[in-house]
Computed example of a mutant assay.
Amino acid sequence: MKNLTVIENELVPVYETSAGEKVVYGSELHEVLGVKSNYREWVKRRFSDIDAIENEDFDSVEISTVAGGTPKKDHIIKLDTAKEMAMLERNEKGKQIRRYFIEVEKKYKKEQFEGLSTELQAIIMHDKKIQKIETRMDKLEYDIPLYGAEADELCNHVKRKGVAVMGGKESNAYKDTKIRSAVYTDIYNQLKREFGLYDEKGRFKSYKALKRRYIYEAHELIDVYELPVFLKEQVNDCNSQLNLSKEVA
């Protein structure tokens, strides 16, 4: 993946290789996404999350910095892989960048037909049919249940939300096993109701059965989750007992 030429620079710089492959630099994608963790940690985690293969989905490179300075390690990432990495950020910026990459792909696929003979267009149309099959395969991939890393991330999000609505890990409500269990059960049940996670007998399935296409919406639902009235009263009553005991002491 050498001899890169910038072809788009509206959001994340997109490059074209001498072979016509559309790629991005990992460090530039990381910067625009606004990821808080450092680049090395982030890119290693994301490559692992999506099972990216070196020399197939990305290439490792060293970028020269100032004269005599230590070269900076970076990665040249294929656009399809970069789209998936952006999606895993589960935020608005990740969605925006993924849509941007899709539009870039559409633009350059359309330009392939301009000025071509009928024979060449027929060849490209044949290739398009193959691409449509690949696209359907991609869609099927988003119809499968969550990957392990995605399920773990969703679980951790639920845990963080539960701690927050109960008043923290040191709160009386969090330390009460019945209340804590009721809160987490309610969060998971709300997810399952929202996304129809039922088996044939109408029983709830595991949250891990959530389709990958709904991962963004699931995280957004957790973000805005509020305790139902009866649980909120239990949490408040339990936490107020702690305050009263301190006042008496």
Rank of each mutant, 00 (worst) to 15 (best):
P71H: 04
K73G: 06
D74N: 14
D74T: 07
D74R: 06
I77F: 05
K78A: 03
L79I: 15
L79V: 09
T81Y: 03
M87G: 12
M87I: 15
E89T: 12
E89I: 01
R90W: 10
R90G: 01
E92G: 08
Q96G: 06
I97G: 05
Y100E: 03
I102H: 11
E103Y: 09
E105N: 13
E105M: 15
K107T: 12
K109Y: 12
L116F: 10
S117M: 00
S117L: 01
S117D: 04
T118C: 08
E119L: 13
E119Q: 12
Q121R: 13
A122G: 09
A122E: 07
I123A: 11
M125N: 11
M125S: 10
H126I: 08
D127E: 14
D127Y: 09
K128N: 13
Q131F: 12
Q131E: 14
I133P: 04
R136G: 11
M137S: 14
M137Q: 13
K139N: 11
E141T: 13
E141L: 07
Y142F: 13
D143T: 08
I144T: 15
P145C: 06
L146N: 00
Y147L: 07
G148L: 07
E150R: 04
L154Y: 02
L154G: 04
C155M: 11
N156R: 13
V158W: 00
K161Q: 03
G162D: 02
V163Q: 05
V163K: 11
V165F: 05
V165I: 12
V165H: 05
G167T: 01
G167D: 02
G168S: 05
K169Y: 09
E170P: 02
E170F: 07
E170N: 13
S171H: 04
A173I: 02
Y174S: 04
K175F: 01
D176I: 06
I179Q: 01
I179N: 02
R180G: 05
S181P: 01
S181A: 09
A182K: 12
A182C: 01
A182R: 10
A182N: 11
Y184K: 10
D186N: 14
N189T: 09
N189Y: 08
Q190H: 11
Q190A: 07
Q190D: 07
L191P: 02
K192N: 10
R193L: 06
E194G: 03
L197V: 03
L197Q: 05
K201H: 12
G202V: 05
G202C: 08
R203E: 08
F204Y: 15
F204C: 03
K205P: 02
